[in-house]
Every structure is written in C-alpha cells, then in structure tokens.
Amino acid sequence: MTELIKQLLADGPVILDGAWGTQLQQRGLSSGDCPDEWNLSHAEQVECVPRAYVEAGSQVVLTNTFRSNRLALDGYGLSAQVQAINRAAAEISLRAAGDLAIVFGSIGPSGKMLMTGEVSESELDAAFSEQAAALASAGVAAILVETMSDLAEAKLALAAAKRTGLPVVVSMVFDSGKELDRTMMGDTAEKVATELTVAGADVVGANCGQGIESYVGVCQQLHRATDLPIWIKANAGVPQICDGEVVYRTSAEEFAKHGPALVQAGAKFVGGCCGTGPEFIQALRKSVRG
C-alpha cells in the first residue's frame, strides 16, 4: 500500500466527491458541450464543483477530465488541447481543495471499442499515457481510472497511469448479468479484482451503472477477491426518463443510509456518481463517519 493511501485510510473510511456532469449542467453546461473544455472557457464555474464538495466534507475530489484523453476529445475536435485541458483541470481542483482535500486525476474510457478493432492497444496506451503524464505534471496526488466497462482497456489505462509513479485507482462499471454484478463484457467482480490486483492497481472498485444498494453485493465480491482497498461511487438510483430528461429518484438521505452497509461490505473509499451532489456527500459523511 502506498504511503498516500495508507495516510488517507488511517482515520477510517474516506469520503469522496459526487457527480460532476450534472453539477456542471446546473451551472449552464449544454448537453452538446464538452464538459472538459469548460476547464479553459468556464474555469470559475468548474471550480464551484470541487469547492462545493470540499465544503460538504469530501476528503478526495477529482478533476474535470473524464473525457480528456486524445481519443475522446477528438470527438469534439479538441484533440490538440489535451495538455491544456488536463493542466487547467488539475489547477482548478487543486485550488478548490486547498489544504482540506486531496486531488485525484480522473481518466475515463476512450469511447472506442478495443474488441471490434475500432482502436488498437498501442493507440489506447499512447492516449492514456499522454493524459496521465499531463495530470501528474500538473500536481495531482493520484490517478483514478474510472467508469471502465472493458477490463482490457482498464488494464491498459492502469499500466499507463502507473508509469507516472503515482498511486492508481481502477474503478469498473457493473450493470450487466442477472444479478447486475458483471461488466458489460461479462466479467465478474471477482475476476476484475483479481486481475487488477495482479496488474498493479493500488485500489480497485466500482462506480456508475446502478444505485448504492445494489453495489453492496458487488463490494462484497470485490473484497473477497483482493486485499486492496475498495472504492465505491454509486449513482443516485437507476436513471429514469421523465419528459425527455434523465431523472434520478434516490434522495440524499436514502442514498446515505446505505453507506454503513457499504463500509461493512469492505468499502474504504465511498462517494457518489451520476445524480449525486454535495448534499449526498454531506449526508454520506454523516452516516459513515458520524
């Protein structure tokens, strides 16, 4: 276990941040806009998000870089802005965190399918290496590889992030199979935890995909398969379409009441994903840390 992870865990479960996309939408981001480009054009608005989470009690906040690898940014015509977007994002979150929280750099999926040949392993490695290096040079304390559905892609991102020398968390999406405990590719939580542990992850976990109550079982499976700390960031329930808009029905109080069960199942890092906000983090912190 790295010294940073050890220090974070010394005082009990670590409270993470919540969703970013929905928070930026509340501040004016349109559905067709690239959220990550706002690091350059709307820095003050972006900074409001991690600042609100820190004020709510988050001990770790992310960077607004979920789509900031070259392959994903190319869909917005922004592939030439990789360095600038990642660096600006790190500076924004570091300012907001101050001395009250730690900043983990977010790396999301490429948006390309490895198994169909839409992208090659070498292209993924180059894209993830470029982003990880940009985040590391900008001063983040660790890297989070998140919302991954393909274990092969996740391991490539992990290898690229590990070359920075920083601690690396890898978080997969489990929303498939009869029990909703498999990735889109059909991998079980046990398989994911085992392979990511062997591949050198410092923390493994799950995010997005489903609500917090469903991730208790996934957390147990991950915990059984590895000695590494477990990271869980669940959605505010399963999204529903209401009048053409995505709506999350779970309240902050309902979300937070499942926090202790997650911790009992083995979670060491807990936070929120889609549909959650500062009020969710505040309630979660109260439920698991008192």
Score class of each variant (00 low, 15 high):
R27G: 09
A126G: 06
A265R: 02
D36I: 03
S176C: 14
G77C: 07
Y76A: 05
Q83K: 08
A236D: 04
D74L: 11
S287Q: 14
A96D: 06
C273Q: 00
E190W: 11
I15N: 00
Q264P: 08
S171V: 02
A101T: 06
E179I: 11
T188G: 09
L4M: 15
M172A: 01
E44C: 09
F174A: 01
S171M: 05
A96H: 05
T194F: 12
Q264W: 12
L71P: 01
N69R: 04
Q83C: 10
L24F: 06
E253C: 13
R224M: 12
V238Y: 13
A136K: 11
L24I: 08
V247Q: 12
V61A: 03
T197Q: 13
E3K: 15
G111L: 05
Q264V: 11
P260G: 09
Q221S: 14
L124S: 02
N207M: 08
A52K: 10
Q240W: 12
K286H: 13
G117L: 10
L78A: 04
N64E: 08
Q83S: 11
E146H: 02
L158E: 01
D243N: 15
S93E: 02
A252K: 10
Q210E: 11
L158V: 14
I107F: 03
P167M: 12
C242M: 15
L114E: 02
M148R: 02
Q59R: 09
F269H: 02
A265N: 00
E44A: 14
N207G: 05
G244L: 08
V46P: 00
S214K: 09
Q26F: 11
L100E: 14
Q264D: 11
M1Y: 11
I5A: 07
C242H: 14
Q282R: 13
I85V: 09
G237T: 05
G12I: 12
S122A: 12
F66Q: 02
E55A: 15
T147P: 03
V103I: 08
G105M: 08
L124Y: 04
